[in-house]
Computed example of a mutant assay.
Amino acid sequence: MKFVDEAEVRVEAGDGGNGAIGFRREKYIPLGGPDGGDGGDGGSVYLLAVENVNTLADFRYHTVFRAERGQNGMSRNCTGRKGEDCYVPVPLGTLVTDADTGEVIGDLTRTGETLLVAQGGFHGLGNTRFKSSVNRAPQKATKGTEGEHRTLHLELTLIADVGLLGMPNAGKSSLIRAVSSARPKVADYPFTTLHPNLGVVRVDDLRSFVIADIPGVIEGAAEGAGLGLQFLKHLSRTGLLLHVVDVAPYESADTPVEAARKIVHELEEWSDELAAKPRWLVLNKIDRLPGEERGAHCRAIVEELNWAGPVYNISAINGEGTRELMFAIMEFLEQQRRKNSEQV
């Protein structure tokens, strides 16, 4: 299975309704004159950013979206009904480009934001519009114009404050389950996460942030191996990366230090900008270590990595250390937001 973070869709706006040719034919009004009404405008197609959609997976099955055609004009100067607009829900962080020209149409980043991607056709004019002093009975009406048709390329960049990085089965999914209401799949085998998951962490009633769990990264990912690195672009908008390391891996050829170094290498290969983002080391699964060995074992990992940034020892499975980590993250993000607001 492959997560769909890119998709192509066809959008077709409705044509405008045709204008009508008609004349009043009422008793005792022999020269009633023209009464053909205008057509209705065609419906347009909009993309709508919503919170409850996290992937573009649905576009594998539904790839064409059409708005309604405008109704034709009618006699008695009745205007045709406007075609219904079509609203297509997409995840926050969807970048929209024209697949044929490469033109960037827009970037949907706020809940409820809409983006016009196909303009409906303009209504045709009825023959009443063409009445003049020299043409009392015009036989002319115009057709509605065609609605816009185009193929769109959709690309998803998740919007999250914090992103989780780590080798497969490092415990990222367990961590996001422990600190938020997100419920990604958790199992004792690699690659249980096949698509990014978002969770909202609430440290109290008025303080919260969004955390993203992406598929595990493996060696060679920057050259296309595995699933994880193709999703690192989703983390380009995050303010903080949590590098999750399994301190007691089962049946793994890599030690915790080797696994951590591989992640750092793949980050640097992928993007200097992403590698330079603030990154904290999170040593997970300390519950698997005897109590008297935990401190020494974790310190040895940090020293061998020569890690200079913040370090947190946690057990995502039982929640140990996660509360302190979440409060520290909240403080860090609030400081970042204050700095950004002062710079504006």
Rank of each mutant, 00 (worst) to 15 (best):
P34V: 01
S208W: 06
G171V: 03
A182R: 06
L241W: 01
E292W: 09
N169V: 07
F231Q: 12
L115N: 03
P91F: 04
Q343Y: 14
S271N: 12
A178L: 03
V344A: 13
L175S: 00
H195G: 03
Y46N: 01
V247T: 06
R110M: 14
T192W: 01
V179Y: 01
K233N: 13
D272R: 15
W307Y: 15
E342D: 11
N72T: 06
H243D: 05
A296C: 07
A187V: 10
R110G: 05
T55H: 14
G171Q: 05
T145C: 08
A57Y: 02
P215S: 09
M167N: 04
S180H: 04
I263A: 01
D41H: 14
T128D: 02
A178M: 06
I329M: 05
R177M: 08
M74P: 00
E304K: 13
M1D: 05
L116T: 10
L175Q: 02
S271A: 12
R76N: 07
R207V: 06
V45Y: 00
A316M: 05
D287M: 06
A187I: 10
L152I: 07
C86W: 02
E146N: 08
H243V: 08
R81C: 05
G36P: 00
E303C: 03
H265T: 14
E268H: 14
G199C: 06
E155W: 03
Y61C: 05
P34C: 02
V88W: 02
I263M: 06
V264M: 07
G126M: 03
I211Q: 00
